[in-house]
Every structure is written in structure tokens, then in C-alpha cells.
Design a protein around this nucleic acid. Structure first.
Lengths: 211, 211
DNA sequence: CAATGTTTTAAACGAATGTTTTAAATGACC
DNA sequence: GGTCATTTAAAACATTCGTTTAAAACATTG
């Protein structure tokens, strides 16, 4: 190989460990150990721990958000052409669903989706400084699209509700299999498609609630 | 003073800093420094950093959850007596509102509510191990109360939706003034009462959504 | 006042962290 | 094959962390 795959192995390990334990609770030694690479190699390839996090984000989030952007634009365009309002459920599905289908691609993307969820709920400034700029344009597009779908809703209320939706969504992406607070129920929806559908229904109803 | 107030100053500082920066990103030195106490005094009074977190939780969460439990019981009792189903909105208000009114009591409780919110969304095991046992009975009571309010809803679906609601709620309690993702709107609801009402409306609509 | 138990202080310990250094190995290219 | 940039390796560096130690200061009680 002309290019070593050490760089990729480090990216994979960082993705996995950042998703599982968070940025600050993951050491460079843990990453390079899991990647079976040398400690210095990580700093050689990426410069710093924070730059490594940035690289982890960019590798997958850019194409993923591209896909979500296109789906949102398509829905708004279709509705405009038909002379009707875009549907809230369709918009939220366009925003949520790609992350979940993305999730089922392979083991690496699976960890990455957890990392997205973590970044959405986490208050840590390091992760946020990497994550927010990458998702902000998409978020604004979602907001303006929802404004079209809900023209009667004051923008300030919509924004507040959208923050609620982000909280619900982040928690779900972060650990869809795991329910932090437990009660005994015979069976909870196990596969992530069912959880995604439930999430879309939940946040859509919340967004459409009477004011 | 027969009892030193160093212990209380340390508790206050820990509460503030844990809420603002999280458990792992707050050092014992930062806590004792803000409390104007000696580093060893903290370990003398509490034994360890983790025990300090436990003490921070217990000081306020026990009476707060007592209040929430009573409100939930009262609503269910009233409805039972009247022979009607309890109202989802009332139940969620009983669960959410006390934390917000609690919040407006003084500066210390303000920080504590942020800590609750952080603990609800955070995946960190240390915080969770302290927090979950303290809130689990209340959560189960909320669940069974909602089951009465929504008898047609399968328990598994209800649980899933309640997890979404916890995500939305945690995010809001954690930083009600701060909107992590921004768009330009003329004015967002500034006071926490308005945000709480919006939150109650949002999650109630989500819980009541058709299945 | 003396004695005793409690609280506070300053200093140090050992472990873990991100990063850097220095040198060895590897591989491409003339 | 030799030269040179690229990549790995091991070790060390400077901080920071939670915790402990040992002594001083304080308060309480006989």
C-alpha cells in the first residue's frame, strides 16, 4: 500500500471510543491502543486530539448532511410545485431517517451515529465547537422548511419546539438500544426503524401542537 | 458557629461547577478554590469526589422528588375519585413544573436544576449511577400514571415516548436560557415559565399522538 | 487551664493525561 | 543502490488529577 492504513485505523478507533465514552473520557492512549498503532502516530497524522475529533466528524458528517439537505430541499420543492404546504412528518423524516439508515450500513457508521447523538445532547464545548458548525446550515434549512409547513406558528415558538425535538432525537441516536430509565414492559421496540418511526411521530405531534 | 460552613460552601461550589462543566471536567481543586476552602477539606468532609457528587444530589433532589410525587399522586387520586382519566398535560406539568419553580428560588437551586438536566441527558456512568436511583421511583410513578391516562397506548410505546420526553426535558432544564443551535428569530421565550409551558405542550402532544 | 476531639492547612504521592523529542525503520524515486 | 521524505517506535516531559499524610489551629468540655 502506498498509503498506510494506520490513519484510518486511528480514525475508526477514535470514532468508536468518542461515541462510547465521550471526548474528555477517551485518552489518546486508549485510541492508539485499540487501533494497534503507536501513540505518536496519532499526533503525527492529526496534530492534536481535538483535530482528531474534527477529522472523525468530517469524514462522515459532511456526506450525511448532504443527503439530508437534498431530501429536505426535495420535499419543499415538491410541495411548492403542488401548491400545498410541506408536511411536518415528511420534513422530520428527511432529517431523522438518513442517520438511522446510515447507522445500519456497518459497524463504523453505527458508532458514528451514537457520536452524533452524544454531540447533540452534550454540553461539552470541545465537541460542540466541532459539531455545531457542521450541522448549523442543515439546522437552519430544517427551520425554514418547518416555517413553511407551519406558517401560523410564531418562529420563536417553532425554534423552542425544535430544540425540544433535538433533545429527544439526540438521546435516541446516542443509545437507541438502551433505555436509561427502566420500567418493566413486556417488549419495547427493538429495531431502530421502529424507534425512528416512533420518534418521528412524537416530534411531529409536538411541533404541530396547538399554540 | 458550632458547625463550620465550609462543608456547605464546598457543596455549593460543587453544585455550581458540576452543573456547568460536568463531573469529569470539574476538578476538586476548582471546587475548593471556588469555595475558598482547602483541597483536603473536601476529602475530609465527603471522602471522595464521587461521594461529593452524591451529597450534592441528595441535598436537593430528595425533597424535590417528594414534591413531584405528591403532585402526581394527587392528580391520579382526583381523577379516580371523579371517575375520569387523569389528564396527560396535568401529569407532565406535575413532573416538570416543580423543577422550574424550584429553579427560581435562589441561585443555588438554579445551578442544581441545570445539574438535573445534565444528568438526564448525559451518558456518563458516574453521574448516572448517582442520579438514576434517586429518580427511578418517581419515573416509575409517572409511567404508571400515564398508563392510566392513556389506557389504549401499548406500554412499550409509552415507554419509548417517555424517553423522548426525557430527552427534550433534560436539554431544557440543563440550559433553558441557551439555545445550542441558533437561528435568527426576533424574540424567543425568555422566561423559564414560558419555556416550561411550551415544553409541557410539546411532550403532551407527543405522548398523545395517534399510534 | 488542660485535655480531647474536630477541623483546616500545606505539602507530597502516585497515576494518568496530551504532547514532544529523538532515533530507527520503511518505502518511493532518481 | 543511495538519498530523502514519510512513517513508526520508545521514551521522556510537563501538567493535572484524586487522594493521602502529618502537623497545626481551633473549638469544646472536664
Amino acid at each position: 500500500m502506498s498509503q498506510s492504513d494506520t490513519k484510518i485505523r486511528i480514525l475508526d478507533a477514535a470514532e468508536h471510543l468518542f461515541a462510547r465514552h465521550g471526548f474528555h473520557n477517551t485518552s489518546m492512549r486508549a485510541i492508539t491502543s485499540e487501533a494497534e498503532a503507536n501513540l505518536a502516530a496519532a499526533n503525527y497524522h492529526f496534530g492534536s486530539k481535538e483535530a482528531l475529533l474534527q477529522a472523525v466528524f468530517e469524514r462522515r458528517l459532511v456526506p450525511l448532511n448532504q443527503q439530508r439537505t437534498e431530501r429536505l430541499r426535495h420535499i419543499v420543492g415538491q410541495a411548492e410545485q403542488a401548491g400545498i404546504l410541506p408536511d411536518v412528518r415528511d420534513l422530520m423524516r428527511a432529517f431523522i431517517e438518513p442517520t438511522l439508515t446510515f447507522r445500519n450500513q456497518d459497524h463504523g457508521t453505527r458508532a458514528f451515529v451514537s457520536l452524533i447523538g452524544r454531540s447533540m445532547v452534550e454540553m461539552d464545548s470541545t465537541s460542540r465547537d466541532c459539531f455545531i458548525p457542521l450541522i448549523e446550515p442543515l439546522f437552519k434549512l430544517l427551520f425554514t422548511s418547518l416555517q413553511r409547513a407551519l406558517p401560523h406558528l410564531p418562529p420563536a415558538i417553532l425554534l423552542t419546539r425544535l430544540q425540544f425535538a433535538m433533545g429527544a432525537m439526540g438521546r435516541t441516536l446516542c443509545a437507541p438500544d438502551q433505555t436509561p430509565l427502566q420500567v418493566d414492559v413486556e417488549s419495547s421496540p427493538s429495531n431502530s426503524e421502529a424507534v425512528a418511526e416512533a420518534l418521528i411521530g412524537f416530534v411531529s405531534a409536538g411541533l404541530e401542537a396547538p399554540c
